[in-house]
Design a protein around this nucleic acid. Sequence first.
DNA 1: GAAATATGTTAACGTTTCCTAACTAAGAAA
DNA 2: TTTCTTAGTTAGGAAACGTTAACATATTTC
Lengths: 170, 170
Amino acid sequence: MGIKVEKTKKLSASMEDYLEAIVLMKQDNDVARVRDISRFMNVRKPSVTGALNVLSEKGLVVHERYGYVDLTREGEKLAQKVLKKHKMMVKFLCGILKIDHEIAAIDACKMEHSISPQTFKKLSKFIEFVETCPDGERPDWLKSFDRYFKTGRRPECRVRQIKRKAKNKK
Amino acid sequence: MGIKVEKTKKLSASMEDYLEAIVLMKQDNDVARVRDISRFMNVRKPSVTGALNVLSEKGLVVHERYGYVDLTREGEKLAQKVLKKHKMMVKFLCGILKIDHEIAAIDACKMEHSISPQTFKKLSKFIEFVETCPDGERPDWLKSFDRYFKTGRRPECRVRQIKRKAKNKK
DNA sequence: GAAATATGTTAACGTTTCCTAACTAAGAAA
DNA sequence: TTTCTTAGTTAGGAAACGTTAACATATTTC
């Protein structure tokens, strides 16, 4: 009865992709046009028009016929959220796990739609934790992992070395 | 002409979910029935029947009318693959990142469909690396991260401490 | 064994998301 | 300005995946 419920409709992965593409286009070209979105997403133009109609309905996008595409404040917010997840995921896969960039990008594109807020937060902090490590570029334990992954062997950790030294002294 | 091409059709996330459910049902109840799959997946029975037809066509499932559901060897292989990804993801989210189990399960359910082989391998090794750590239950660096996440502070690493000690001695 | 219940299937339909073909509008070039 | 090209839209349809309603088959239970 008159109370307007903000339907924070959950967006489909597809719609999230469109939002994401729009921000990226605006970042790169200053404006977003159907054609660019279409090319970027590997999708035909009518698909873009269709998606824009849906997103307009939801109040996430502003788009007058034959005109540029823009995001509403809410659309922008959502788009940034998705973009952040994407970038975070790439950083994790590429930067920490050292997955090939191309593959990481593909994985991130899909995973960005399935990350809960809690997981996003934790993973982001994890990345921060690694990046701000005082060891230098890459923390020692991560270098250990790199070696472990390559060789299957783990450099003995300090504790053991110390123990061994002690043993030898006896 | 006549060469039978093994169409290793990529399965949709949905179909992967059905396969996964079937293995789980068989593990738990010894057999898989439409009703169980339906309940487990939160989907109506006709949807299950439909999916089973699709999977039968692809040679992944054996299902005679009104009978139990079974996996072919290939179906079993694919199902296990998905299940492995799922379990790996839960281990990572829960065991390493310490995401709440419920949320981790939800995330894993979605992410399991978007993990490339390379990422799967790396993440699996990473988990192994953590689990076989000689520090004990949880590696020291991970404990550091736990603290970092909670408090935002990072315990100073050994190198610095050593440096500081040296400084103090001067 | 017959009735009641549980299980499974079919048919018809809705939604989402993509496509092609054909059309319209806008912008550039002559 | 008229024409050519590019960009965008509309209409119509297909595939994937889910739903409900109605029907068919198994299984219990008395």
